[in-house]
Each structure stands twice: as structure tokens, then as C-alpha cells.
Write a protein that binds this DNA or RNA. Structure first.
Length: 504
RNA sequence: GCUCCGGUGGUGUAGCCCGGCCAAUCAUACGGGACUCUCGAUCCCGUGACCCGGGUUCAAAUCCCGGCCGGAGCACCA
């Protein structure tokens, strides 16, 4: 991000104001934001590992708190042990990926561990007769909601309500028998707002708190209380939660609290992935279509990490999406461009010959050592052995026509001979009119070759071939396989190299 | 069906609250050229947008109304 700071040093002070402006303009201004007083949160349900979508939540909230020098809180909204059941490992994954994304929370909250806190507040509401236990079935209540009629339980007295509440807690009711509803307005013009559920009975084991509770708050209740307690000033979340504000405001009014400023963004569709829900991914992993949650073909942050993406590139990409309420359909090409900017300068270059074909160079005067730059921008060299027997990729070979002049990059220039015999004729050590983009190809002698498989970014996609041995020293790094793509060397061993496709 | 929200170049985005400095920003993509012994990078140059129709106004991408299109919610999910 700041690698070019030196360049700007001379212009220095004069530029500072500009840079500041540009930095802030990564995101539009936040309404009512006072420097040092902004508190924001990212509130995931850890029912799978973070994806690009969740990362957006982390990064945008984090970026704003950084701009305004505020506080960032991660809160796990994990109050449904059944339908959207949290995954135990995913709590850790979220924290790890957040750290990797340079999102450093000031606090981490687990809603499931604070359930007694929510009990206290609903009790107050019950006392105030602003909430009531409702024995209607879903279907029954839906009728009331749709027709705007109050249900018979609505005017239960505080005393009775509290009694039912205690019985709920002690397990005297079955699931579905009774819920606690918040009184809003059964005539509210938007049916979605009418007397919503704050607590329900779920007799199911919770990954984090086991069977300690059987009465769980809904997201709307839990997050309403938490946002106030945590002193959240600004909420940015998906527009699927847009109604939450109107629902939760009733509670805020009953208690005389001030509701945070909210902003909502639309759905993100990534061209390359289509729509993939967490549950859909889980299914496909189980069926073997994907290797696991970090399969390079998946839009999880773990997968992008495995592919060698830079956190900063992902941040920039996500920030470029802004916070508009419209749905966006964006191509990963933008992410690639962002990452390439960072990775191009430091990635070592290597020859990777996929779908290799062995060809012979006739008339090669001598075998030579070929030295080439590891990276066009520095002087570090790598060495290859130019032999008369070499490997080129089938893609190139098929393109060649007899008589073509071809430059074997760094080695020599040849003329394509009899294609059936796979022969090349040595022409010169010099370039001999070879032009970039035309006929300069990469190659490899057996001497330098080691088996290499590149795991692709689509399900089941793999390339097999040979890579130059020099690459074994770059395990864990992103390198560029020339004329192929940027790849991360994942494993290098006796039997070869495994690399992960990063991007073109 | 009911409620709410949004529509700026191919894509994403800034600007819209507080009309004029917007013949509209930036990025990416695309086209052309230069350079480099990578189909990568770099450097030039270029194409390209305010959904439509009315209204208010000296002046509208910005305000108002209508239409069209798109999206979200209407769960004892998050």
C-alpha cells in the first residue's frame, strides 16, 4: 500500500492534503460521524467460514472506524442453534481471517454467552407491557398480521406475562408452543413490522453453550439490545436487514434509547462464482465437488489466502464496491488487477511448461547455461541449462508452422522443422527478429525440470507439466509462471511441486 | 398481494442530503500506439454514462410528480 512512499517524499508536504483526501474518499462520508467517537460492529453468524461477502462487512466497517479513529467490534450473532447452526471452528476462522485482513477488533462478543443479559431486558419490557407471550401458531398469527388484527394474547397483563416467561425458562413449554412478541403496531402499514418475535423456545444443543438455554432471542432482539449496550453509533449491513431498524426502533423508543445511524448495501454477485450460499457450498464439499472450505475454486477468504492473494488487494477490491443499496455484479478481474499491482514487483519468474512436448534442436553448437532475471525489476538471476532436447508446451507447438522463426526465451532462436519429427533447427544465439507477443516462448530442459501440478480456480481444474527446479525455493510465495499466470507455490518435495492458481 | 428501497460509461464507483465550480470522478474493461527476450508490467492516446416522460427554476445527475426496470422484507433464520 505504501510501497511508493519514497517517490512522493520530495513533493512531501504539499501533497499531504491531497493524499489525505484521496484516502478518505475511498469511502463516502459517514453521516454524523465525529472523529474518535465512532463505534461500529461486524456481526456474523459463524455458520461457515468468511466469504468475500462477509469480508465486505469486516473491511467496510473497519475502514470507517479507521477513518474516524473509532472502535470496531466483532460480535457473533449466534442465537440460532438449529436452522442457522453455528460451526465451532468457524468462530476461530472469522477471527483469523479478520486478523489477516488487518481488521483488529477492539472487542469480541459472543451473543450466545450473553443470553441472561437479554433476559433482563425482555423482563423489563414484559413488566412495561410492551411485550407479551403469544400462544398463536405461526399460521394463526400470520392471519392476524396480514389482516392487522391484534391477537387475543396481546393484552395479557404484566403479571401473567411474567409468570408465563418464568415457565418458559424452566422448560414447562414445548418448542413452538409459545413465543414472546414485541408490541409494535398491528395496523402498521408494513406487515413486516407488526408484533415481531423476540424470544422462542429451541430445545437444541448449542455448539458454544451446550444445553444451558432453551429460550433463545431472535436476531432482531439480541442485536437491538447489543447495539445499545455496546454504544454502536453506526451500523452498516446488508439490505436484507433493512426492516430490522423499523422493528427495533420500537424497543429503542420504549427504553428511550437513541438508534444508531444505519447504512445498507445490496447483494454482491461475483461473475466467476455465481450465487453460492454457505449451505450450498457445504453440500458440494460433502459430495466431493470441492476439496474443502479452502478449495481455490471457492469464494471463501481461506481460499483466497491459499491462492496467495494479498489482504490489501482484497480490501481495496471490497472498498471499491462502496456502500450503495443497489445490488452489484462485479468481476473478479478487478480483484486480480488490484492484486497484480502488489504482487508483480515481487513475484519471481519461472518457466512452467504445461502439457509438455519434447522437441529436439538440430545443429545446436553447444549446451549452454542461460541466465535470466528472476524479476524484470531487479538483478537477481536464475540459471537454466540450454540443451538440445527441450520441453515446450503443446499449446505453442500446435501453433507453430514449419518454417516459423521462434525465440526460446533467453536461450536461442530456432526455425521450426518437420513437425512430425518434432524438430527445431538452430538458427542463432541472437534474437533474429523475434518480437514480443509474437514468437517468444518459454521452454525447459530435462536437466532443470521438476513435475508440477497447478490447482485451478474452477472446480476440478488442474494443469500438469514441469516447472524449473529453481522454484522449489519459493514455497509459500506467489511467483509468476511466465506466459501462464501468477501462482502460489504450495508444496515442493521430492516428487514435485504443487502450485495454486492465483490469477492471470 | 402489502411495505420499503434503488436506477451515473461494458463493469464497479464519486457527485445527489446543501441545484450552478459536472460538456460528470476514479478504477477496471475495451481499442490504438511505444517499450520490455513473458500472453505480466510500464508509458502515452482514445472510445464510452446521468433509465424514460413531465414539472419547478435564470440554472437539475442533483428538487417534485408519473412511468418503466431492478432489488429487499412480509420466518418461532441470520
Amino acid at each position: 500500500m505504501t510501497s511508493s512512499v519514497k517517490k512522493g517524499e520530495i513533493e512531501g508536504i504539499e501533497e499531504t492534503g491531497k493524499i489525505e483526501k484521496i484516502k478518505k474518499r475511498k469511502l463516502p462520508e459517514l453521516p454524523n460521524a465525529e472523529e474518535g467517537k465512532v463505534v461500529m460492529r461486524f456481526a456474523p453468524n459463524p455458520n461457515g467460514p468468511p466469504t468475500l461477502g462477509s469480508a465486505r462487512g469486516m473491511v467496510v466497517n473497519d475502514e470507517y472506524t479507521k477513518i474516524y479513529k473509532g472502535k470496531m467490534i466483532i460480535r457473533f450473532d449466534d442465537t440460532d442453534p438449529r436452522i442457522k447452526r453455528p460451526m465451532l471452528e468457524a468462530y476461530r476462522w472469522y477471527l483469523e481471517d479478520a486478523e489477516w485482513l488487518n481488521v483488529k477488533p477492539h472487542k469480541v462478543i459472543y451473543a450466545s454467552k450473553r443470553i441472561p443479559l437479554y433476559y433482563r431486558y425482555i423482563k423489563k419490557l414484559l413488566e412495561m407491557e410492551k411485550a407479551y407471550p403469544c400462544f398463536c401458531s405461526r399460521e394463526e398469527f400470520k392471519k392476524y398480521r396480514d389482516s392487522g388484527i391484534e391477537c387475543p394474547h396481546r393484552n395479557t397483563s404484566a403479571e401473567q406475562s411474567l409468570e408465563v416467561w418464568e415457565r418458559m425458562l424452566s422448560g414447562e413449554y414445548e418448542e413452538g408452543e409459545v413465543v414472546i412478541r414485541i408490541k409494535t403496531d398491528m395496523k402498521h402499514k408494513d406487515p413486516a413490522i407488526r408484533d415481531w418475535v423476540a424470544f422462542r423456545i429451541v430445545k437444541s444443543d448449542h455448539p458454544l453453550v451446550g444445553d444451558r438455554y432453551i429460550v433463545y432471542p431472535t436476531l432482531d432482539f439480541e442485536s437491538a439490545i447489543e447495539d445499545h449496550i455496546l454504544g454502536i453509533t453506526h451500523i452498516i449491513r446488508g439490505k436484507d436487514l433493512i426492516d430490522s431498524e423499523r422493528r427495533q426502533r420500537y424497543i429503542y423508543n420504549y427504553f428511550g434509547w437513541k438508534y444508531p445511524v444505519t447504512k445498507h448495501w445490496g447483494r454482491v454477485k461475483i461473475h466467476e462464482f455465481g450465487k453460492l450460499s454457505t449451505s450450498e457450498i457445504r453440500k458440494r464439499i460433502e459430495s466431493g465437488e470441492y476439496e474443502g472450505w479452502d478449495d481455490p475454486a471457492l469464494p471463501t477468504i481461506r481460499a483466497f489466502r491459499r491462492r496467495g492473494f494479498k489482504a490489501e488487494a482484497i480490501r481495496e477490491f471490497l472498498l471499491s464496491l462502496g456502500v450503495g443499496e443497489n445490488d452489484v455484479a462485479v468481476s473478479l478481474k478487478n480483484l486480480y488487477a488490484e492484486n497484480r499491482k502488489l504482487v508483480d514487483k515481487e513475484a519471481n519468474r519461472y518457466f512452467f511448461v504445461w502439457n509438455p512436448i519434447e522437441v529436439k534442436i538440430e545443429g545446436l553448437p553447444e549446451k549452454v547455461k542461460v541466465k535470466m532475471q528472476k524479476n524484470p525489476e531487479n538483478d537477481e538471476l536464475r540459471e537454466l541449462y540450454g540443451d538440445e532436447s527441450i520441453l515446450v508446451t503443446e499449446d505453442d507447438w500446435n501453433r507453430f508452422k514449419e518454417g516459423d522463426i521462434v525465440r526460446l526465451k533467453g536461450f536461442c532462436t530456432v526455425r521450426v522443422g518437420d513437425k512430425k519429427d518434432r524438430k527445431l533447427e538452430f538458427l542463432s544465439w541472437e534474437m533474429k527478429g523475434a518480437k514480443k507477443g509474437k514468437n517468444i516462448v518459454h521452454w525447459l530442459s530435462w536437466h532443470d525440470s521438476i513435475v508440477c501440478v497447478v490447482v485451478g480456480d474452477k472446480p476440478m481444474l488442474k494443469w500438469g507439466g514441469f516447472v524449473e527446479k529453481n522454484a522449489v525455493h519459493d514455497v509459500g510465495k506467489v511467483v509468476q509462471f511466465e506466459r501462464f499466470a501468477f501462482c502460489k507455490i504450495e508444496i515442493a518435495g521430492e516428487d514435485g511441486i504443487r502450485a495454486i492458481y492465483t490469477h492471470p
